[in-house]
Amino acid sequence: MWSFFHKLGSPPWLYRISGSILRWLLPLTLIALCAGAVWGLFYTAPDFRQGNSYRIIYIHVPAAVVALAGYYVMAIAGAVSLIWKMKMADVAMKACAPVGAALTFIALVTGAIWGKPTWGTWWVWDARITSMLILLFLYLGVIALYEAFDNKEAAGKACAVLTLVGTVNIPIIYKSVDWWYSLHQPASIKFTGESSIDPSMLYPLLLMIGSFYALFTCALLMNMRLEILRRESRTGWVRKLVGA
């Protein structure tokens, strides 16, 4: 167990293992994403009230779910890098931010596009949508804060603290539709009890959620590899890797 953690802290090992994971995970993710999108777009019936515009949920919901989960990954990595000073946790935290920002952006934009035909407006300042916008700013804030420091160790610390402060936003996003009156509807997929979405529509949605998790993993690993190369560029193993 502990030897695994020690290995995780070793840049060359992480670089090598992430490379071999990406070699099969990336193509698999792309295939699953395309399959899920085609299934959702062409092989499901339209919703009885929204018609075909509901097909946007096949990207909106997975993007939103993984954007939230990605924040947990970033916060845990931030805490580990603060407490144990683990360099690779710092790398992981930094690598999470652009991926999470992209997914949050997708969730917001597709939500706006879906809102126009459904609600009759692109945007409304309700609790769910506003807290999601704050999530985007948190991700962008971590990216900006990291770039603002010349000393990367101080940058990592500042970003970790910002990330930890921002975690309070995550339960707010989850619960916003239950705690306050909002325009956004409550969750359709329920972990306990029956989901209020028909099985024929649920299965492609679950496939898409799985694909987006895999996509997050791929993008995270790719960003981590880039950052590892950048930080370790003076070491022997990178010189050997690049020279060969």
Binding site: N52, R55, I56, I106, V109
Partner: peptide
């Protein structure tokens, strides 16, 4: 998509 095409396809394209 029965009139919803521009919305759906714009969302997927973005």
């Amino acid at each position: 998509m029965e009139g919803h095409g521009p919305f759906v396809w714009a969302a997927y394209a973005i």
